[in-house]
Design a protein around this nucleic acid. Structure first.
Lengths: 144, 144
DNA sequence: CTCAATGCAAAGTATTTGCAACCGA
DNA sequence: TCGGTTGCAAATACTTTGCATTGAG
């Protein structure tokens, strides 16, 4: 849209290119910006809306639709993982391995459960013709 | 009290009154009909849309909104349990105890995993001020 | 230069809600 | 009769999509 030919303070070669490149995604400005927000702050669990809010707060000029599309692209590229816990809301997790989550029913937030706090004594056999893709564990917490 | 001495075309005494009464829900015609569909066929995992479809097929004259409201009422009464597995779709389970589910990614169906197939060797401690309400386990199956 | 990526807004899907008519107790 | 329920349709929330413009390689 705008003519941006002035070498601003944005070093565009310096984004999380490696992270993006791992999945063969072209490192555009928006993707770099979102990737920075995602991997910059440790493990995160956020919704598209929340990420869009952060992008807006940081004046990144990323539209909500692009946030949705980008999160989806990251997910199918294996860079993020979807967590479905509440009806009508998808959370994205920057950790992509199988791990359990705490869900605080009081405020709808999500957190990683302590590493190793959940261990399986047994897992079911996958039915014929299938294999286990992942095992999602959600520990729902209620205020006592 | 009134004695029901007019056996008209509405066999209203013959629904799952006990099931409904357990939660203090008034056994209306629609609720009885839906309850019959729900508990009549063993353990079920279905969406509001699916249940509405069955009700329509059986000429029960229950509106979609009522199906939603009824499922919600049943759930908060503890007669059903919500399962959130897919974004934008809520399944209801006629089994209300903590138990693991298989989710077939290929067609989006849900099934109970074999009883006892999942056992925990350890569970996390609930953070301060909270207690564990439930532990949801979803085994996602992919076609091999 | 070329084609994928973006932005906007409109379309879609799943679910909820307001309010008048209805029916079970 | 009385108040909880129902039904319809409009409203809401979240997410996806179409299409012209933009920008990375």
């Amino acid at each position: 849209m705008t003519t941006n030919s002035s070498p601003d303070t944005a070093p565009k070669g310096e984004c999380s290119t490696a992270w993006l490149g791992r999945a063969g995604l072209r490192p555009t400005r928006q993707r770099c910006a979102l990737a920075g927000l995602l991997i910059g702050g440790g493990n995160r669990h956020l919704t598209a809306e929340a990420l869009h809010g952060e992008a807006q707060a940081a004046d990144m000029g990323v539209s909500l639709a692009t946030v949705y599309n980008t999160l989806k692209a990251f997910t199918s590229a294996g860079l993020l993982r979807e967590i479905v816990i509440e009806p009508g809301r998808v959370y994205y997790d920057t950790r992509i391995d199988d791990h359990p989550h705490f869900y605080y029913e009081s405020d709808g937030t999500i957190a990683d459960a302590p590493v190793g706090s959940v261990a399986f004594a047994s897992l079911p056999d996958a039915p014929d013709g299938t294999e286990i893709a992942s095992v999602d564990v959600v520990v729902r917490l209620r205020t006592r």
